[in-house]
């Protein structure tokens, strides 16, 4: 069926207008796609989310499914932080995404500076052997479809084991701090868009990450699950009591935060990290300064 654009009279000069209305994230999307596809290990690139459906706004993230040959998945995962830092412009190591649906792979979220703005880039690494299934479940646009060389059963099993191990590995204090920084970006976006329900869910995730950070720093050998027995395990020392007070402040804040609430939570978590696990900040001072500058400019 002809589109409205194709019916426009030839004398209408629409190209410039069309160009002006391209999503601002398109250059970043192109840059990351070119970067990733330079490796023969990458068999597929799918764009999903609002940039695939044409509903992107200036806050939209860049969301890829990256098909990686099963044989190369462990090496690719190990190299991903270096690749995204050196060539992708990531401020921080990737956050292992615990929001994304399980499609047999593993997701990472990177905060990337691009043209003076902080952008969110989601990379879901899927073993090439799973791509047919992933494509059935994910509505997206295919940017790259490169048939992989033969994938053996052993390689498939190795990739599955690799994904399972990564998913099961407990997060370090540094990873939990990065989780807070990523969630704060997501929350600012929800607040600006007025997405109260999603903001509520992500605010709860942020509090849970704070609880996990405290437990990882001060009660690593805890035998109790989740939120149980926190006071019994942590309130034994002044530092534990101060951290519990921080957690109390977090969970008694409004159910749906304002931007000021999110910023206060970040301040609280950075102070908590400095107090309970200062090594988690090693090498991140400049990144956190830059992160806050970009948030102020947003």
């Amino acid at each position: 069926m002809p589109t409205a654009l194709s019916l426009a009279p030839a004398e209408l000069q629409l190209a410039e207008l069309t160009e002006a209305n391209r999503p601002a994230q398109l250059p970043l999307l192109t840059r990351i796609a070119e970067l990733l596809s330079a490796s023969a290990a990458v068999t597929h690139l799918l764009v999903r989310g609002s940039l695939a459906s044409g509903t992107a706004d200036r806050l939209s993230d860049v969301d890829f499914v990256v098909g990686v040959h099963d044989r190369d998945l462990p090496a690719f995962t190990a190299a991903l932080d270096d690749l995204m830092t050196v060539a992708g412009g990531a401020l921080l190591p990737g956050w292992r995404d615990t929001i994304v649906a399980d499609l047999g792979g593993i997701g990472f979220v990177f905060l990337v500076q691009h043209e003076g703005k902080l952008q969110q880039v989601d990379l879901y690494l899927a073993p090439a052997s799973q791509i047919t299934t992933v494509r059935r479940k994910v509505s997206g646009k295919v940017l790259l479809d490169r048939p992989p060389t033969e994938i053996t059963t052993t390689q498939i099993e190795q990739a599955e084991t690799h994904v399972a191990k990564l998913a099961a590995r407990p997060k370090s204090c540094t990873e939990l701090l990065i989780e807070h920084l990523v969630l704060a970006v997501l929350l600012h976006k929800r607040i600006q868009r007025g997405q109260k329900f999603v903001a509520y869910a992500e605010w709860h995730m942020l509090h849970t990450a704070t609880k996990d950070l405290i437990k990882t720093a001060l009660a690593l050998a805890s035998r109790f699950w989740g939120w149980y027995q926190l006071r019994e395990e942590l309130a034994l020392t002044p530092i534990g009591r101060t951290c519990l007070a921080d957690l109390d402040a977090a969970i008694t804040s409004p159910a749906v935060p304002t931007a000021a609430d999110v910023n206060a939570a970040l301040d609280r978590v950075l102070a908590l990290t400095e107090r309970a696990c200062p090594n988690a900040l090693d090498g991140l001072a400049d990144a956190i300064t830059a992160y806050r500058t970009y948030l102020e400019l947003a």
Binding site: L35, A38, S39, A40, A41, D72, A75, F76, A78, A79, D82, L83, V86, A87
Partner: peptide, 11 residues
């Protein structure tokens, strides 16, 4: 070397 082996020589 890991990056180069994956084809990311520039990186």
């Amino acid at each position: 070397r890991r990056l180069a082996d994956l084809g990311y020589t520039g990186a």
